[in-house]
């Protein structure tokens, strides 16, 4: 309980800090005043906060929550501590969906093209892409119980995707290519308020769906057969978990690009901090930590006080990749992983 209080406080603090730091440092008071509608000391500050930093901070919160929760769902569903939307190739699947839309739009009839090039089309393609990859991973996982094999399949999907994208680039214009490249680098900024609304709705649906699976998720901690013997409708629970995961990972990837490792690392941070496997606790812990971690990563990308901005993916990978290696090493001594 105390921990939840601390996390909530940290989230609020980091949210305001995130708004205040950047290439232009805006004093804390002015940020709070802008948010409460009193207006900042300078009109430019207010403009920066409301039109640039606030959308970005909200995106960071939503993306952090969505990716982390989808990671938690997959780790329990696949009984695999190394599962996550990026590692399992979900982000790749989403990328492929988006690549088809952005790069392949030229092949589509005009009427359909307009829909697919809109935000809705991108989100739909992205969710569909991650859903299909998830189904494929699931099919492989049913045949191979091996942890590492599933990860290798995820890797293969990654390579496969980049190959297809490579082929698509041959047929696309320079303009399309540029649009896709920027998207693929990952960015939390540059979302319109309309896009944020779509993302928020998608994340809410995904989070609510996940919430209905908390009990089956706890049963799955003992494996599929025990879960079934305890009265869980496994087929239905698995479908909802996959649906929720695809919606969360797909929508976030559609708007923020493939953000690496957040989905894998954050659930472990939550498990470590709360020392539990109970999904009622982990659900909230993961949501809060996810938002916090991505806000911190976003602050780091701004390199406060400088004009430089790092790609978000670089920062999350620097944090996340060592976590994966550490987890692999820990797996050796059978204990908690």
């Amino acid at each position: 309980m105390i921990l939840f209080g601390v996390l909530t406080a940290a989230l609020v603090l980091l949210f305001v800090l995130n708004l205040s730091l950047g290439s232009v440092n805006i004093p804390f008071n002015d940020v709070v005043n802008t948010l409460s509608g009193k207006g900042a000391g300078k009109a430019t500050w207010e403009f920066i906060i409301l039109n640039y930093r606030l959308p970005k901070a909200i995106t960071a919160v939503l993306a952090g929550m969505g990716l982390s929760l989808s990671g938690l769902l997959m780790q329990t569903l696949f009984r695999n501590p190394l599962a996550g939307p990026y590692v399992l190739g979900l982000s790749s699947g989403a990328s492929l969906g988006v690549a088809f839309v952005i790069l392949g739009a030229g092949f589509l009839p005009i009427i359909v093209k307009d829909f697919f090039l809109s935000s809705y089309g991108t989100v739909a393609a992205s969710m569909l892409g991650s859903f299909l990859v998830l189904l494929a991973v699931l099919a492989v996982a049913a045949r191979l119980r091996d942890t590492m094999a599933i990860l290798i399949v995820g890797l293969m999907f990654g390579s496969f995707t980049s190959a297809i994208v490579g082929v698509l680039t041959y047929f696309s214009t320079a303009q399309q290519l540029q649009k896709f490249t920027f998207w693929a680098m990952g960015s939390l900024g540059s979302l319109s308020w309309e896009n944020i609304a779509i993302l928020a709705v998608a994340c809410t649906i995904g989070i609510l769906l996940a919430a209905t699976c908390i009990k089956p998720l706890n049963a799955l901690l003992l494996g599929e057969r025990y879960a079934k013997s305890m009265g869980i409708n496994f087929g239905r629970a698995r479908f909802i978990i996959i649906l929720a995961t695809s919606i969360l990972a797909g929508s976030v990837t559609a708007f923020a690009g493939p953000v690496a490792f957040i989905g894998l690392a954050v659930p472990h941070m939550a498990k470590l901090a709360f020392r539990t496997s109970n999904h009622i606790v982990l659900f909230w812990a993961t949501l809060l930590s996810g938002a916090i971690v991505l806000l911190v990563c976003d602050i780091v990308t701004q390199l406060p006080g400088s004009d430089l901005t790092l790609p978000i993916n670089a920062v999350t990978s620097i944090v996340g990749a060592p976590v994966v290696i550490w987890l692999l090493l820990r797996k050796r001594n059978k204990s908690y992983s």
Partner: peptide, 25 residues
């Protein structure tokens, strides 16, 4: 069992699932 952080009490308590509400409280 798959890897998890379950305590002995929590593991035993999972047996109550057929009787608990939708959240498993």
């Amino acid at each position: 069992l798959p890897p998890s952080n379950l305590s002995v009490f929590e593991l035993t308590a999972l047996g109550r699932q057929p009787y608990t509400n939708w959240l498993g409280i």
